[in-house]
Amino acid sequence: MDADKFNWLLRAGDNALVLSQRLSEWCGKGPVLEEDMALTNISLDLIGQATLWLSLAGKVEGKGRDEDALAFLRDVHDFHNLLLVEQPNGDYANTLMRQLYFDLWHCLWLESLQQSGDTEITQIAEKSIKEVVYHLRRSTDLVIRLGDGSDESHARMQRAADTLWMFAGEAFMNDELDHRIASRGIAPLPGSLRERWLTQMTQIFSEATLTMPSADAWMQTGGKQGRHTEHLGYLLAEMQFLQRAYPGAQW
């Protein structure tokens, strides 16, 4: 088995899966109907992408685990998503700021994966980026409107930006697996995306009349290696409830 590729694919799939699950928590209780629909549609896009990544991961592993087995039958420490995507929804400002931090990285990452030397990865990237471009358009637009909105919305957006900032840097940290994957031409080094992300984020913060936290701030890490914040366990307990209560259940 190509363990490096398998683990890298889990990182890709888990980001989409965990954020999808988080967004689905808003279903039926979004602040307005249009936002409720937007969030669940984005959640659906992400679960579709998670299916593609995890199904490929299962194939690479070659032990007969499909995307459902990987989603529902792994525990916290076997998840490799970024800490950012498991952070709680909080108020709507938190949800939107988390989405902007993620969408901008996601878009740049998928853009670069279209140059991957691995055809199956290129195909998933080409499919996903068309969807993610719309996610980014929406989160950019809303962060600007609410940042440059009322005193209340501005204050909330600033608080969300500050609270979540320490989770935004992990996506750009290179670990040993990243170096091995990059040297094989499968994916770019995460750090190579940082400059464009910061440049564009600076632009968005400026238009939103928000203050961007320091690019040199200390960043939380660990999610990619399976060391998570306390929030992921609760998320999985809900997402995996059926398989935990009724092992092997199918419908």
Binding site: Q114, E126, V133, R196, Q200, Q203
Partner: peptide, 15 residues
Amino acid sequence: RAMRTSGTIDISALS
């Protein structure tokens, strides 16, 4: 027509 998403995307123009 659909936006071109291959190659480098002009992210600053998306909004």
